[in-house]
Design a protein around this nucleic acid. Structure first.
Lengths: 252, 252
DNA sequence: AAGTGGTCTAGACCACCTA
DNA sequence: AGGTGGTCTAGACCACTTA
């Protein structure tokens, strides 16, 4: 064949369509094994690369995932719910509950790869925090692992001039987390802005979040402002899109 | 070679890494043409399918897009900013200090494919709107096209019992939109909830939004509640993730 | 040990775009 | 017209998983 000729769709597309329909119709449920390359080569009488391409479509759509040596399987979708507004409400962070504990409920959460450093402010961050050239930031990086599966990478940036020497720069910032410490230092966050994007992960992100093909990341960038309008923290979060539903509640 | 042998990464990964680095280093800017299959075959001494696989990696990462007969090009990212909470004082926190630049200027927006129908309530929607089995909903579907590029699909569901016969069911709901009409009918929305997900698009969504490979969709599902807590509208939005930055502002 | 997906080769014809 | 990406074939060796 070749080209996009033959009037209809390409062979691999037809095969992918058949498989997708079988999944949406429930012929294959979450976790089930799909017909493999050899099966498709036989039943559709195509070459290996063509069968492979068809299975690749489902994988890049996030419908299926391959496990080397085992087969191609229908993926499951079991997200967490992250509430953007209540979770940072003052009564929560003032009363000994860290932000993450507020929305993970009963599943086992592990914080991983925690590193606290002082660095030159990255370009975008420095602008938001209104830093002068050469100013440094305290960066708190960490990874959240839920039931053994990494779900979130976070990097929190704070002006070093504001927080150096305080508990904010130690691995464990103490009860209430860094917002409680900021409040004690006279920089209590009064307002938050969250900006949200989504894109495909970089190779590095896919690696650290153990993402399968066809899984985007959600980027949430939260800026914390004091009552007098100074930005005191920027928190960049990179989330496994298959693990999260974000929720924002607000009045008209 | 074959397998994942050879100790290092696969050839196509190495090539993809080289290309990605060249892009991030600015060797190729947005809109520039990358080395094509033939170039890579020559410079890396690999087979066609291997060069192709390398370029496929960049495409599925959303870094590049292919144009048939022309080449593979670096993609551009020029998102719109969508503010979820309009009522927040803009002066006070400012719009200048955002992490991701986005167009605020007015670009030409066209609403497309508008259809208003009355249908049986889909499973999930009926539950949220607290409908009885067999109740119908008024569905307003439309597509937003910005400067010729479709960016958003929306489907708004309202209980037919509440709105049938009103201007809500006509193509042009009049000044203030359907929320103004709901208010006149005694069902003024007082509270909103927005739930956000991201995943790869279905073939149909990719088609209607004219999405390139490696572009996820952002799903925003907004529920409008009246002051007494009744859900009166569910609005399902499917957005081109490369075209949007969402923003939520809220106080601590 | 057998089967699976991962990688790779060396060809081929096609439709599309740009010049 | 010539180059580009899109599709396809028919082989091959490999590492991995499962039994």
């Amino acid at each position: 064949m070749g080209g996009e000729g033959g009037r209809g769709r390409a062979k691999y597309r037809r095969i992918a369509d058949d498989l997708r329909e079988a999944v949406t119709r429930g012929r294959y449920g979450p976790g089930d094994r799909l017909p493999g390359e050899n099966d498709l080569m036989a039943s559709y009488e195509v070459a290996r690369m063509t069968a492979r391409q068809a299975l690749g479509v489902l994988q890049s759509e996030g419908i299926a995932e391959s496990r080397k040596g085992a087969g191609v399987f229908v993926r499951t979708f079991r997200p967490l719910r992250r509430r953007g507004i209540e979770r940072v409400a003052e009564n929560r962070w003032g009363h000994g509950r860290s932000i993450w504990a507020a929305d993970t409920e009963d599943r086992e959460t592990v914080v991983d790869h925690l590193r606290v450093t002082e660095e030159a402010a990255p370009a975008g961050i420095g602008g938001v925090l209104a830093l002068a050239a050469g100013d440094t930031v305290c960066v708190r990086r960490r990874r959240y692992v839920l039931d053994g599966k990494p779900v979130l990478l976070a990097a929190s940036y704070l002006p070093a001039a504001l927080v150096s020497g305080s508990a904010v720069t130690s691995a464990d910032p103490g009860p209430g987390g860094i917002y409680a410490r900021l409040a004690e230092l006279g920089h209590a966050p009064a307002h938050f802005r969250e900006e949200i994007r989504s894109r495909m992960p970089s190779a590095d992100e896919a690696d650290r979040l153990e993402l399968g093909t066809g899984t985007p990341v959600i980027l949430v960038c939260r800026t914390a402002f004091t009552a007098d309008g100074r930005a005191v923290e920027v928190n960049e979060m990179t989330m496994d899109a298959a693990s999260y539903v974000l929720e924002y509640d607000f009045d008209a």
